[in-house]
Each structure stands twice: as C-alpha cells, then as structure tokens.
C-alpha cells in the first residue's frame, strides 16, 4: 500500500501545479470576500470610509425579532421548491428523450435549442417575459386570436409570473445534469428489463430514476440555491408580489447601505439552505 504521493515523487508537485491555481482563485475570489462579509455581519456598521463598527449580534437578532424576515424566508424557500419542481417536471422528460431516443445530428440541434437561452443576457430574457405576460401583451393577444372573447389572463406582477420567469432561466441546468446521468445508464440494462417483461413505467421507476438520481440532485442544488437568493426576476416580474428574502437583502446593500444587516441576512439564508439540504439528505439516506 503506497499513497499516490509516495509512489511517484513527481506526482505531488503535479497535483499542486494542477489544483493550485484553482484553489488560489477560489481563495482570492470567494473565500476572502465571503470572510469579510462574515466579519461585517457582526459589526454595528460597515468599516468603510473611516467609520469603525462595534462588535454586535444585533444584525442576527433582527432576523428573529422582526417577524417579517421569517415570513419572507419561508416564502423564498417555497419559491425555490416550486421552481425546482417545475424544472424537474419539464426538464426530466426532455433529458430522457435527448439521452435515449434522439441520435446524431438531431440530438445536437435539440441540444442547441436547450442552451440557446443562455446566450442572451438574463435581464433581456426577463424583460421579454414582461412583454409576453403583461395585460394586452403577446400571450393575451395570441389567446384572444385563437379563442376570441373576454378572456383576461392578467398574470403579470403575480407570484406565478415570478415562477415562470425563474423556471425559464434555470430549466437548462436541470436538463443538462439529468441528461449527463441518463446517458450513462447502459442501454443493455433497459433492454434486459424489457426482455423480462418490465413495463415502461417500471423501467422508469426502478432503473432510470434511481440511476439518474445524482444528476437530478445536482440539478436541484444548482437551481434551488440561486432561486432562494434571486432578486432581479421577482422585482421585475413580481411587482407588488415580488418581495422575497433576496430583494430585502439587496435593499440593505443598495438602498440603506446597511452592509452588516445585509450580510447577516445572507448568512442566515445560507444557514437555512444548509438545513434544508441536511434534512433532505437524511430523508434520502433513510430510504436508501
């Protein structure tokens, strides 16, 4: 038994050279600023422009003293869960077809269609939704053309509008992660199941879903976390119904320059996300 480093003296250097830049980058670009924010969250005011803050827990206390922060946090968690759910419902079948039914050129073309939205700016995508959803907008006119009548959709500035915008933004993540894990499922396995008389539903339930679970979970994590903290989509599409923990945190940074409170709320959010994942891991682990 030899550790890799002992086995080949040159390997330690190679590992360092190959992983070093990435970890250095992570340290400089993520760990240091995040630590600074963590430090800020315990101060009475941001130590900028010659001001000095004092140590305090007031920023964290504010979350528990003011009931509305908790309400908004739950609302954001619910939004995250709903967006993840719709992304899965829409994305998994799409990934399944791409991975198992479509071959060659067509697959490339369909893939391009999935990735295409990523090529445009996120803000442009959201604003194009406002044209679709608003009263007398493209969607409403189209429906009116098919079914003439006094049908008023009126979906703009609602919770649903926010969900639609976010699902559109994050759907490709779910499709891509599911596709990768579904592609790794051997066709022989499905053939074998079929030859033994398994129905399509059984194949899906007993083979495809369990084997692609890592991909699905990766998609869930990739979507859930940014949706909880999103502020642009709720602000533009949600109108009066667009207040979430993300928009409140943004307000603390941009509207009142209260970085410490904004930072504290961000870390509480991080904690909530951690708790959610820990609980879901427990639940999944018990089943397995």
């Amino acid at each position: 038994m030899t550790s890799p480093a002992k086995g080949a003296p040159g390997q330690a250097g190679a590992i360092l050279a190959l992983t070093g830049p990435a970890y250095l980058w992570l340290t400089v670009a993520i760990l240091l600023p995040l630590s600074a924010m963590f430090y800020f969250s315990f101060l009475s005011e941001a130590p900028l422009a010659g001001k000095t803050g004092e140590w305090t827990l007031a920023n964290y206390r504010a979350f528990f003293e003011q009931g509305f922060y908790g309400t908004l946090m739950l609302r954001s968690l619910r939004l995250g869960a709903e967006v993840v759910f719709w992304c899965f419902v829409l994305g998994f079948p799409c990934a399944l077809v791409l991975a198992k039914s479509v071959k060659g050129r067509w697959r490339e073309a369909l893939f391009l269609l999935v990735i295409l939205p990523f090529w445009s700016n996120a803000l442009v995508r959201i604003f194009s939704w406002t044209m679709m959803l608003r009263g007398n907008g493209i969607l409403e006119r189209a429906i009116d053309w098919v079914v003439p009548g006094r049908f008023r959709l009126d979906i703009m500035f609602t919770y649903e509008a926010v969900v639609i915008g976010l699902v559109h933004s994050y759907l490709p993540y779910m499709i891509l992660t599911c596709y990768i894990s579904l592609q790794a499922v051997q066709d022989d396995l499905i053939e074998a199941a079929r030859s033994m008389g398994a129905s399509r539903l059984t194949i899906l339930r007993r083979i495809l879903l369990p084997l692609s679970l890592p991909g699905i979970l990766a998609g869930v994590v990739l979507i859930f976390v940014p949706v909880i903290g999103s502020f642009m989509e709720p602000r533009i599409l949600g109108g009066r119904n667009g207040t979430f923990i993300g928009t409140v945190i943004e307000d603390q940074f941009t509207a009142v320059f209260n970085w410490p409170l904004g930072a504290a709320l961000s870390f509480i959010m991080l904690g909530c996300v951690g708790v959610v994942f820990a609980l879901s891991r427990l639940a999944l682990g018990r089943r397995g």
Partner: peptide, 18 residues
C-alpha cells in the same frame, strides 16, 4: 429613523403578498 423607515416598508411589502 431611516432604518426604521426601511423596516416599516419591508414589513408592509411582506404583507402585500397575495
């Protein structure tokens, strides 16, 4: 006072949600 104003407004917006 400014912080209090923000607090009141954010609490209000939370109640605005349908």
């Amino acid at each position: 006072v400014r912080q209090k104003m923000l607090e009141v407004w954010q609490a209000t917006k939370t109640e605005f949600q349908n």
